[in-house]
Design a protein around this nucleic acid. Structure first.
Lengths: 339, 339
DNA sequence: TCTTGGCACTCGCAGTTTGTGAGTGCCAAT
DNA sequence: ATTGGCACTCACAAACTGCGAGTGCCAAGA
C-alpha cells in the first residue's frame, strides 16, 4: 500500500538525517526537508507506527526520533542502494595499494586506506595460512641442536619456527630433508601438505626419520593453527570523532585490543564471496561493540577467501558509503594478492 | 638550609598526593597527612615559594596546587628513589617472556606486559636491523625473472625483499650467489656487510655480476634503512583510565598512530645503556603528547643497544613505579634476545 | 479510511541564581 | 621563621525558571 511505502520513506529520512546531524529528528523537519508532500501530522502518525514496529525510538519524551538497531537493519536491507565510490577514490585506492612493497606493506596500506575513506576503525586480516600454498621451505641450523624452519607462502607470508633436534644429525641430512620437504610440499596447502609429507616419510630412517617427523608436525601445526592468524588495525583515533562519549569508548578500545575477538568477528561472516556482511549493534554479539556496527567482507580469489577485512563504527554510520568502501578495498586487495 | 629541605618535602607531598588522588592538594591536607610537624600556614608560605619557582600551580584561585612539568622534573631528578618491583612481579615478567615462541611473540609480550604493569600505553621497538648481524640469507626464485631474498638476523628478525632479475640467469648461478652471500655476510653487520660483499664482487662476471650487485644493493638497503624499524603498541585502552577527557585523548591517539613519530620518540634517548630516560610534558617535543610523559629505555647487550621500549602516560603518573617497570622489562628483554 | 490543522501537554536543556566550602594571602604576634 | 586569625576568592553543585521542540490526540474534511 502507498501508506506503507511512505512509512519506509519516513524511516529513510530519519536514518539519513540522524546519520548526518547526530540529532534526534522530528516530524516537522522531515516534512520540510524531504519532499514527501504530506503534513507533519501525517508524519507523526507514521512515526507512531514505526515506533510500534520497533524501528525508531525516542531518547526522551519531548525529543525527536532516532533509529533503533532494527531500524538500521531495515534501512540496510530494504532502503539503501550501494553508493558507488567516485572514480577519484577508486584511483586513489589503486595507486596507493600498488605502491606497496611487500605483504606487510599491502596489509597496512589497506588498513590505513579503509580507515581514511570511512573515517572509522579498519581491521585487515593477513591472508590465512590455511588457505595459502607453500612456496618455499628453508632450514637454517642455528646451533648444533637447534634448527630454524622458514615457510614462505604464495601470498607472501613468511613464518619462522624453532625446532630442537638431535645434534648428531648431519648438515648433509638436513639438506636432503630440505629438498624432500620442498619437493613434496611446494604448491600444496593444508591438508594436502600433511598427507603428502607423511606419505613420503618412508624415504627416511633413523635420526633423519625422527627429525623429518618433527619437521612435518611443526609445519602442519604452523599451517593449521588458527592462532597464527594476524591482523592490523588502523584509524583508532577516528573513535574520538562524532562526539562519542568516553564511557562508551573504553569497552570498544578494549575489544579492539583483543586480537582473538577481532579475528572471531572477521570470521563470522557470509560465506558468499564478494558479499559484504553488515552487523548492527548487538548483532555483533560482543558486549564491548554493543553500540557499534561492523561491516566486513572477504577478500581473495573469486572462488575462495584468503582472509577478511572490515570497518567498525557507530551504529549511526553512513552504511551505503561504508559498504562501498569495504567492498572496493576488498576487491583491490584481492587483485593485488593474486598478482 | 632546613627550610629549603622542607619545601622540597612539600613538593614531594604535592606530587605524591596529586598522583594518587588526581585532585589539587591544599595546605591543610599536607599538614595532616604528611608528618612534617608544621602548621598549614607554614606550608602555605612554602607553597607560595614553590609557586614563585614555577614548580607548582593553581588550576584556579580557590583551589589547591598541582605540580607543573617543572615540578615533576625536580621530583624525578631529586626526590624519587626507584621503587623496586616485588619479586612476584619480577617472576611474572620472567615467566611470561620466557614463554614466547618467536621474535614477534617476544616483542608483543613485552608490550602487553609493560602496559599491564604500568597501566599505561607501552611501545616496544623491534631490534634494529642496523644493529643485528646476518645469520642466514636465502634466495628463492619465484618466477624466471623474479627472486625473493630472505634475510634472517641473529635477533630473529626475518625480512623479505623482491628483486627483478635477468631471466637468463640460471638456477645454478643463483646457488653460487647464495653461497657467496652467506659465506661473506653471515655473522657480519652493517657497514661491514656492504664492504665485504663489495670486496667479493670480483668473483663474478657477466650476468652473475649484475645480479650480485643488485643483491648487494638490496641487502645493504634493507639493513640500512631507518624506515624498516618496526614497533608494537599495547594498552591503548588504558588511555581511558584516570578520567582523561576526550578532547585531550584525540591528539594522543593520533600521535600513537604515527609510527614514524613514535620511532623518533624512542630514538631520542640517553645513549647511556641501562639508563632510563624520562621526558615530561612538552619535553617530548610533540604537540600531541604535550600532556603526557614518556619513560623510555634501551634494551640490548651491555655494550650496545638493539632497540628501545617505553611507557606513555599522563604527566601525573607514578614515576618511580613506571621507571622501575620500564627498566625491568628492558632488562629481561635484553636477556631473552641475547639467548 | 486516510489526512490534516489545532491544541494542550511534556520535558530536556540552557541560563541564572544562590549557598557552600575549600583554599588562599596577608598580617600581627610570638 | 613560624603560627593563628581573618577576610576574600571562586569553582561547583543544587535549585529554579523560561523556552521551545516535539509529541499525542481529536475533530473535521477529503
Amino acid at each position: 500500500m502507498q501508506a506503507d511505502q511512505r512509512r519506509l520513506e519516513v524511516l529513510r529520512a530519519i536514518v539519513e538525517d540522524y546519520v548526518s546531524t547526530r540529532e534526534p529528528v522530528g516530524s516537522k523537519l522531515i516534512a520540510e526537508r524531504h519532499g514527501l508532500g504530506v503534513s507533519p501530522a501525517t508524519i507523526r502518525n507514521d512515526m507512531a507506527a514505526l515506533e510500534d514496529a520497533g524501528l525508531i525510538a525516542q531518547p526522551h519524551t519531548s525529543a525527536g526520533r532516532i533509529p533503533t538497531d532494527l531500524g538500521y537493519r531495515v534501512f540496510v536491507d530494504r532502503l539503501s542502494d550501494v553508493k558507488p565510490l567516485s572514480s577519484a577514490e577508486r584511483n586513489a585506492i589503486k595507486t596507493f595499494l600498488d605502491r606497496a612493497v611487500d605483504l606487510d606493506d599491502v596489509v597496512h596500506r589497506a588498513g590505513r586506506l579503509l580507515a581514511q575513506i570511512t573515517g572509522q576503525v579498519a581491521v585487515v586480516q593477513y591472508p590465512s595460512l590455511r588457505k595459502s600454498t607453500v612456496r618455499h621451505l628453508e632450514l637454517v641450523r642455528l646451533h648444533p641442536s637447534r634448527v630454524l624452519m622458514v615457510v614462505i607462502t604464495d601470498t607472501g607470508r613468511v613464518e619462522q619456527r624453532h625446532l630442537d633436534i638431535d645434534p648428531t644429525v648431519t648438515d648433509e641430512a638436513l639438506v636432503t630433508l630440505r629438498a624432500t620437504l620442498n619437493d613434496t610440499a611446494v604448491g600444496q596447502r593444508q591438508p594436502h601438505v600433511g598427507e603428502r609429507l607423511r606419505a613420503a616419510a618412508h624415504l627416511f630412517s633413523g635420526d633423519s626419520f625422527d627429525v623429518y617427523s618433527q619437521l612435518v608436525d611443526l609445519l602442519t601445526a604452523t599451517l593449521d593453527e588458527e592462532n597464527e592468524d594476524r591482523l592490523v588495525l588502523a584509524g583508532t583515533s577516528n573513535l574520538t570523532r562524532n562526539g562519542v562519549v568516553i564511557t562508551q569508548l573504553r569497552p570498544v578500545l578494549e575489544a579492539l585490543e583483543e586480537q582473538v575477538v577481532l579475528l572471531k568477528l572477521l570470521s563470522e561472516i557470509a560465506d558468499d564471496h564478494g558479499a559484504v556482511t553488515v552487523r548492527i549493534g548487538r548483532e555483533t554479539r560482543l558486549d564491548g561493540l554493543r553500540e557499534t556496527s561492523v561491516i566486513t567482507s572477504h577478500y581473495g580469489s573469486s572462488t575462495e577467501s584468503l582472509g577478511a577485512l572490515g570497518s567498525i563504527g557507530p551504529t549511526g554510520m553512513d552504511y551505503p558509503g561504508t559498504i562501498a568502501a569495504v567492498r572496493a578495498v576488498a576487491r583491490y586487495l584481492s587483485r593485488i594478492l593474486s598478482h
